[in-house]
Amino acid sequence: MRARVYVTLKPSVFDPQGRVVADALVTLGYGDVKDVRQGKFFEVELDGADPATANLSAEAQRAKAETRVTEMADKLLANPVIESYRVEVLE
């Protein structure tokens, strides 16, 4: 099972890199660019053969994966003081 985690700075936190990228896009002629927020993207591969989840239904496995990856995002992949995250579980 695979999961994707998208991490971005919270809206209340100024993103200097995103600002520079937005300015560069405008310089390139994309005058309609109003703002860019730069973030991080993680692909997490989980071992489907985990005996703890092998007997669960596909739906329950998915829910369990989502809980675990959310926990990972909260504990390590994102710094919750400044960043927010979104978790997507794929088959």
């Binding site: 700075l9 936190v13 993103d15 200097p16 890199q17 710094n79 003081v81 400044i82």
Partner: peptide, 15 residues
Amino acid sequence: EAGLLPGAMVRNDRV
């Protein structure tokens, strides 16, 4: 990051 002090660091405002 270890939580021994409050807050966080972000990129310098002038990058």
